[in-house]
C-alpha cells in the first residue's frame, strides 16, 4: 500500500472534505438530517481511512491512543454536565432554557448543540479506539 501513489494522493485530497462534511453534519443537524452521532462516525471514518492508507502509526501521531481513549468518558461527562447549571438554578435536569434566561428557545438551541458535541466526542472516540484495539491485536 505504501507505493500506491494514486490511492495516497486521492486519499489526501478527500480527507479534509470528509472532516468538513462531518462538521457540517454536526453543526447543521438542527436544520437538516444528522447530528452528533452521525458526525462522530463520519469523523472516525476519516481517521480510519487515513490509517488504512498511511498506516496506524502515522494516524496515532494525529490522534494519540491515550487521548482517544480518554475522550470516551469525556463526551458522557460533557453531556451530563450540560444538565448541571439547570439543577443549580432550580430547574429540571437538562433544561436548556437556563443558558439564555431572556430568550428561552435560544438557550434550548445552544443546549442541543452542546449535548450533541458530547455525543460526537463519545461516538468518535469509541469507534476509533475500537479500531486501534483491533490493529493492536494484529501485533500478537
Amino acid at each position: 500500500m505504501r507505493r500506491d501513489l494514486i490511492l495516497r494522493i486521492v486519499t489526501k485530497l478527500v480527507l479534509p472534505f470528509i472532516l468538513l462534511f462531518a462538521l457540517y453534519v454536526h453543526f447543521h443537524g438542527d436544520f437538516g438530517p444528522g447530528g452528533g452521532f452521525q458526525a462522530g462516525v463520519i469523523a472516525a471514518g476519516m481517521l480510519i481511512l487515513h490509517s488504512i492508507v498511511f498506516g496506524v502509526r502515522s494516524t496515532k501521531h494525529i490522534a494519540p491512543q491515550g487521548l482517544v481513549e480518554a475522550m470516551i468518558p469525556l463526551g458522557v461527562l460533557i453531556y451530563a454536565s450540560v444538565g448541571i447549571p439547570a439543577l443549580i438554578s432550580g430547574r429540571n435536569f437538562l433544561d436548556y432554557g437556563v443558558f439564555d434566561p431572556h430568550h428561552t428557545p435560544h438557550g434550548h438551541h445552544l443546549g442541543i448543540l452542546m449535548v450533541e458535541s458530547g455525543v460526537l466526542i463519545t461516538v468518535f472516540s469509541t469507534m476509533l479506539a475500537i479500531f486501534y484495539a483491533f490493529s493492536e491485536r494484529g501485533r500478537s
Binding site: F31, Y79, F93, P105, H106, H108, G111, V115, G118
Partner: peptide
C-alpha cells in the same frame, strides 16, 4: 417555538428526550 430548531428529529432527540439520549451515550 420552543427550541428554534426546525429539524424535529434533533429537537426530540436532544431536548424533549434529552435524558434518553444521555442514556444512549
Amino acid at each position: 417555538e420552543e427550541t428554534t430548531v426546525p429539524n424535529v428529529v434533533t429537537s426530540v432527540l436532544a431536548d424533549y428526550r434529552g435524558y434518553d439520549t444521555m442514556g444512549e451515550t
